[in-house]
Nucleic acid binder design. Structure first.
Lengths: 167, 167
DNA sequence: TTGGAGTGTCAACAAGGCTGACGTATTGTC
DNA sequence: GACAATACGTCAGCCTTGTTGACACTCCAA
């Protein structure tokens, strides 16, 4: 099934076109992660630490369970990452004032500095690709990515967007 | 540096737009890999096996070192993956006829069947996103991805494309 | 008061990267 | 013909980052 070689109608794509796009996504994503990986390596940190730092920066004060859902990993896996970030003075974990079971996560100044360094590298690559491809291409890029997410991803993505526009 | 809030000229993008795109890429890529992961899980295989199978399918007869360069991992890491795939009867390794030091890799019928299953799932998600976003968006998507690759990725990506158009 | 939610942590395990070192064909070169 | 280089395989050990299962603690809400 689904072995269409030619387009049966509007909006269909050839097998070869899809395979080529899958490869493009693979190689592009690899480059996308390679830049921050190099920065993290000198500190002995990994991609998991980067992801935690990124989302804590985007939503300061977010709880552990929100971060858990956003990352889509288990609490044990996240805990190991957070413990390290807190021990290195990059992240601060505050007990909730309303509900004291909750931990609210913030970047320390050192954490914010690292976030900035990582983000600069990643934005440089993405921004460079955007400038090379042009404004129209960027709109298409975003549209395809958003259509490609699964429900969990879409929920997290939307929640992050909402948090940027409070009220 | 590089903290531009407004567009200084044509083809510049806001900090927020870049950060949002980075998140979109993260969530989309996670969905993109989740589908094949589910299929592989029941066989006890992982993402690394998928990647090897994908590229062997795209370039039947490719040598071990070519695959090594394409994947960007060490020969020890690849060897572990290949050994498993050969043991399970999914991949065949033929001694080179010209240079007997080379090993040429092929999918067996069972390997091709698995490749098809994995590829169907991945093409379904990418194809669905393409149809939802439209033809113009797809062109932009590809343009951005290709501009985002690093040199190694671009080389591998180009080599795969050339191999599809022999002569 | 009690159940359950949110969190932290221990242990054990697996995938899949890495480096270093070594062995073995095979090929090309002096 | 001797020897270096290439292509590949493999062993051993290490790391990150994911998993399950189990347990303890704090605290909120019914």
């Amino acid at each position: 099934m689904a072995e269409r070689q030619t387009a049966p109608g509007t909006g269909a794509f050839s097998d070869e076109e899809l395979r080529r796009s899958i490869e493009a996504l693979f190689f592009a994503y690899r480059a996308f992660t390679a830049d921050p990986d190099r920065i993290l390596e000198v500190r002995g940190l990994g991609r998991a630490h980067h992801r935690a730092i990124h989302f804590i920066n985007r939503q300061p004060g977010m709880t552990v369970s929100t971060l858990l859902f956003t990352l889509g990993i288990t609490k044990q896996a996240l805990n190991r990452v957070l413990r390290r970030l807190i021990a290195e003075g990059l992240v601060r974990s505050d007990i909730g004032r309303g509900d004291r079971r909750n931990r609210h996560l913030f970047l320390t100044p050192a954490g914010a500095a690292l976030e900035h360094e990582l983000s600069d590298a990643q934005r440089a690559r993405v921004g460079g690709a955007f400038r090379a491809a042009g404004t129209d291409a960027v709109a298409g890029f975003r549209a395809v990515l958003e259509a490609m997410m699964d429900d969990d991803g879409r929920r997290s993505y939307a929640a992050l967007g909402d948090a940027r526009r409070p009220g």
